[in-house]
């Protein structure tokens, strides 16, 4: 229990540091938002009122603490572009990105493990070698390029979906999922290829271990050795990798949302950066970074839980 408490402590500290760093980064940007927003309407009184509304008073540490207190209670500040609370600007978008990411992550899971096991099982066969080469290429294809190819093939040629015509949840659950399927697949393909590759090398590494020889000496075939002995060992690093890749997938969706015109926080982030709407950008950056930190923490705990050597000692 002590280690979990310690890890949770580190988690909170890292979250604090990450938020501080992100906050600081957006503070060094030159220019005064108040002056910019008010433009020709500028009067000292109005400026003071607006400054108060935007939470821009006081020195940097005071602003950070005020922002942090707001952040943890769901008050993310006011968007410069919309002059609305950031929470309202993001409304619904977070769920879209979450759905996209989880769907994509499930696809990675679905493809990578059977593929990795098959590649390791038939590693000397012609077919597996060809598949390994194709896998190598898939690892190198950026998700947004796959997205563009999908838009062309499934959207324009086969007309399985209408590119740019996102179906909201509220309208149709399955329609929404159907639209998100292609961007999710675009993000998943290179990630699944990498995961499969990791699993293959993990299995190959385990095959060199002494316990594998013992397993053979009992009369196991190669496939039985892989299935009953090696796989559970080889999956340990893969589980960690998969847990951490959810954060990568969210980051990947920033770009893929753009390709498929999916109204998620990724598109909002890009738009807010282009429009220099920093409260929105900061909020999204911190949410994603916090997710990364949290997933690393979760990966750590999951490994602890499934590895009896750590769990029981």
């Amino acid at each position: 229990m002590g280690t979990i408490a310690k890890k949770t402590g580190t988690l909170l500290l890292t979250l604090l540091l990450v938020s501080a760093m992100a906050f600081l980064a957006f503070q060094v940007i030159p220019g005064d938002p108040v002056t910019k927003i008010l433009g020709t309407d500028y009067t000292p009184e109005r400026a003071a009122t607006l400054r108060h509304e935007l939470g821009l008073e006081g020195d940097i540490s005071a602003r950070y603490l005020r922002w942090l207190a707001g952040f943890v209670t769901g008050d993310f500040g006011i968007s410069y572009s919309y002059m609305k609370p950031v929470g309202q600007v993001m409304e619904g978008k977070l769920a879209v990105t979450a759905a996209l990411s989880v769907l994509s992550w499930l696809l990675v899971l679905l493809f990578s493990i059977p593929l990795g096991v098959a590649l390791a099982r038939y590693h000397k066969g012609v077919f597996a070698r060809a598949a390994a080469t194709v896998n190598q290429v898939f690892m190198a294809v950026p998700p947004f390029f796959i997205g563009i190819l999908f838009t062309y093939l499934f959207g324009l040629v086969l007309k399985w979906f209408v590119p740019g015509k996102f179906v909201p949840f509220s309208q149709s659950f399955w329609g929404c999922l159907g639209y998100l399927f292609f961007p999710a697949l675009a993000i998943a393909i290179p990630k699944a290829a990498k995961t499969a590759r990791l699993l293959v090398s993990s299995i190959m590494g385990e095959m060199q271990k002494d316990y594998v020889r013992t397993a053979y000496s009992r009369g196991n075939s190669r496939w039985m050795v892989i299935r009953t002995h090696v796989l559970r060992n080889a999956l340990l690093p893969v589980v960690t990798y998969l847990a951490m890749s959810l954060a990568d997938i969210v980051a990947g969706s920033i770009i893929v949302e753009q390709v498929f015109v999916v109204p998620g926080i990724g598109r909002l982030l890009v738009a807010s950066i282009a429009a220099r709407d920093f409260p929105v950008a900061l909020t999204i950056v911190v949410i994603i970074a916090a997710l990364v930190v949290f997933m690393n923490y979760a990966a750590d705990l999951v490994t602890q839980f499934i590895d009896p050597r750590v769990r029981l000692s």
């Binding site: 000496s217 009369g219 196991n220 009896p308």
Partner: peptide, 28 residues
């Protein structure tokens, strides 16, 4: 053949190895 060998392994020939620390599957 390999499948004939598997009938020998474990059933007719048993093996004990040098490294007891690593010769057992750590997760089984």
């Amino acid at each position: 053949s390999r499948s004939e060998l598997r009938q020998v392994h474990g059933r007719e020939i048993g093996m004990v190895f040098q490294e007891p620390m690593t010769s057992l599957n750590p997760l089984m």
